[in-house]
Amino acid sequence: MHLARYDELRPYVTADGSTIREWAGPGYSPARNQSLAEATLPPGTATIAHYHPRAEELYLFRSGRGRLRVGEEERDVGPGDCAVIPPGVVHKLWNTADAEDLVLVCACSPAYSHDDTVLVEGADGRAG
């Protein structure tokens, strides 16, 4: 049995700019077909607009407030909300709070990979 403990997880920054702690996924656990991680966005920050050609993502928001764009649709998000992001659809997430991190659990199938992340804008928010 593989058991991951949050306080032992090493954070890293994904290609889209969010800080991740991965509980399960290839390279971190015996999981081969999916990954499960917690993402954190500090107040006033945003991810880089991107898509994943292969992976479907589920975002389950735990704390904070934000705004999520999936394709052409944008919605406010907060604790208890869950968004489904299909493969190949551009998405971007903003933390709209003044003082609270936006924290979400992210499940990806197949597992998250930097190689499966296509950025569609630069780090400055301009189209790439």
Rank of each mutant, 00 (worst) to 15 (best):
108 C>N: 12
59 Y>N: 02
121 E>D: 00
75 R>L: 12
32 R>N: 03
96 T>K: 11
75 R>N: 00
40 T>L: 04
81 D>K: 02
105 V>D: 10
15 A>M: 08
47 T>G: 13
25 G>W: 08
50 H>R: 01
117 T>M: 09
107 A>G: 14
118 V>W: 07
79 P>R: 10
111 A>C: 05
85 I>D: 00
11 P>Y: 05
105 V>C: 05
59 Y>T: 02
58 L>K: 07
66 G>N: 06
24 A>D: 06
103 V>K: 11
55 A>I: 07
63 S>T: 09
124 D>Y: 01
81 D>I: 01
7 D>R: 14
73 E>L: 05
5 R>D: 09
80 G>W: 04
35 S>E: 01
47 T>D: 07
5 R>F: 15
47 T>N: 10
105 V>L: 15
60 L>R: 13
55 A>F: 03
5 R>H: 15
73 E>N: 04
109 S>I: 05
69 R>D: 06
99 A>S: 15
41 L>A: 04
116 D>E: 02
79 P>Y: 07
78 G>A: 09
127 A>S: 13
111 A>F: 08
111 A>D: 03
5 R>W: 12
98 D>H: 10
30 P>Y: 09
125 G>S: 06
111 A>G: 13
62 R>L: 15
69 R>A: 11
68 L>M: 13
45 T>R: 12
111 A>M: 05
24 A>V: 12
72 E>C: 00
37 A>D: 03
96 T>P: 06
60 L>G: 03
92 K>A: 03
106 C>N: 12
2 H>N: 13
6 Y>H: 13
106 C>Q: 10
68 L>C: 05
36 L>F: 15
114 H>P: 15
61 F>L: 08
60 L>Q: 12
72 E>A: 14
48 I>W: 06
86 P>F: 03
55 A>R: 13
39 A>Y: 08
92 K>H: 09
29 S>C: 12
47 T>K: 08
49 A>I: 04
35 S>P: 02
9 L>W: 01
11 P>N: 03
27 G>S: 07
78 G>W: 10
36 L>A: 11
127 A>R: 15
21 R>Q: 14
96 T>M: 04
113 S>P: 02
45 T>D: 02
52 H>W: 10
108 C>W: 07
36 L>D: 02
126 R>T: 11
49 A>Y: 05
127 A>K: 14
47 T>I: 06
30 P>T: 12
117 T>C: 14
4 A>C: 02
28 Y>D: 07
76 D>R: 14
48 I>H: 01
84 V>L: 15
128 G>M: 08
115 D>K: 14
11 P>W: 06
